[in-house]
């Protein structure tokens, strides 16, 4: 019995270069958010100053973190799911079921990536600005790109089966 919580992130499979690079990008992204939010507080507390665009940027970064995090969670096969069968892993058809699940997820993500692209096009046609000079559609590009990559990842997982999970 370990004292640590059964933390889904603690079991680290042999990190490939891709996963390592991805980890560092994700880590840098959230640290940047912390520093931006903290900078806003410190500037205000010490110098009575605030950057009017900081809050909009902080909020938009939540969307980015959501999509990037979901993409990374896909890579580790760690999405929230309801498994009704407690012995699902031990069934003979487990690998095929997992492929089918990945295929359905890939189809959904591809569809959403397409509609994300439609949203970007809609926004390019007379939309708003995120920062002065930076149009909002640039930020919304995360939807087609993120869900597109997620579709590829799920698609790949529907071809190669999951490594046998250790209990």
């Amino acid at each position: 019995m370990s004292e640590q919580p059964a933390d889904p992130q603690q079991e680290k499979d042999s990190p490939s270069l891709l996963h390592r690079v991805e980890s560092h990008i994700l880590g840098a992204a959230i640290v940047a958010l912390v520093l931006l939010a903290a900078w806003q507080i410190i500037r205000r507390a010490l110098f009575n100053e605030a950057w009017i665009h900081a809050d909009g940027l902080i909020r938009q970064s939540v969307l980015w973190l959501a999509v990037l995090g979901a993409l990374a969670a896909t890579g580790r096969r760690k999405h929230i799911a309801i498994e009704l069968d407690p012995k699902a892993d031990q069934r003979p058809w487990a690998a095929w079921k997992s492929r089918l699940v990945s295929l359905i997820s890939a189809a959904f993500c591809a569809t959403l990536a397409w509609y994300g692209w439609r949203l970007v096009e809609l926004e390019r046609d007379g939309g708003m600005e995120l920062l002065p000079g930076l149009p909002m559609w640039c930020s919304l590009l995360i939807l087609p790109i993120g869900f597109g990559l997620m579709a590829l990842r799920f698609g790949w997982q529907s071809i190669v089966a999951a490594k046998a999970e250790t209990p």
Partner: peptide, 21 residues
């Protein structure tokens, strides 16, 4: 190690926020 832990938190955030969205 900091970046790894931070990346873990982003995966957690992603898994939750994608459902919320």
């Amino acid at each position: 190690r900091l970046l790894d832990a931070a990346a873990d938190s982003v995966r957690l955030i992603g898994a939750i926020l994608v459902v919320l969205g």
